[in-house]
């Protein structure tokens, strides 16, 4: 209940974000919905941009529309071990400056193609990395993992893409001939 209320407040806060100049970044209020993360509305906006790149709107609904970015924050706040959480926050908070330093433009100012290319390069690679680079990689890996969970457990995905039946009924067929014309449903 509190969580849902908090999410609504976040949505309102995020709506007002455009008015805050980036130079006042450090003075922003911490979002109370994510007390463990101590992140600001700008951080949440940064994450939203990442989710929008990982799960863009296509002929299918995009991650932002499904609230996947908010779900990632809920999970990062509630379901991560402390060390992972620290890496997540470090990667998220430093994401703007890290991308600017490494690619000349901060992530939110890139066009969609650039965002995708650079996200891919930041997520890949096993070579020795700097501290912030590692945090960035971990932040993105966690974001993708929780993002997938949020997308694939969304009402949209579980009703329109891979329909889930809460009450399948008493029939169970242990050996059913596969009909090649039928879509394979992971929730079927």
């Amino acid at each position: 209940m509190n969580r849902r209320l908090a999410l609504k407040q976040l949505a309102l806060a995020a709506g007002g974000i455009a008015l805050i100049p980036s130079c006042t970044f450090s003075e922003e209020e911490v979002l109370t919905a994510y007390d463990e993360l101590e992140i600001t509305a700008s951080d949440a906006e940064q994450l939203q941009a990442v989710i929008d790149t990982i799960f863009p709107k296509t002929t299918l609904k995009g991650g932002v529309e499904l609230g996947v970015d908010q779900f990632v924050l809920v999970m990062a706040n509630d379901c991560l071990a402390e060390n992972e959480q620290q890496q997540f926050v470090k990667g998220l908070k430093g994401f703007g400056s890290f991308t600017k330093e490494n690619f000349g433009t901060s992530f939110t100012k890139m066009d969609e193609a650039e965002r995708k290319t650079h996200l891919q390069s930041m997520m890949a690679g096993t070579e020795k990395k700097g501290e912030q680079q590692l945090a960035t990689q971990e932040f993105l890996a966690i974001t993708k993992k929780f993002g997938l969970q949020g997308y694939m457990k969304s009402e949209y995905y579980m009703t329109e893409i891979m329909p889930y039946q809460q009450v399948p009924g008493p029939v169970f067929i242990g050996k059913k001939k596969i009909d090649a014309s039928e879509k394979v449903n992971i929730n079927g």
Partner: peptide
């Protein structure tokens, strides 16, 4: 049994 699956839970 590649041609087969299950149906229901």
């Amino acid at each position: 049994l590649g041609d087969f699956t299950t149906e229901g839970k």
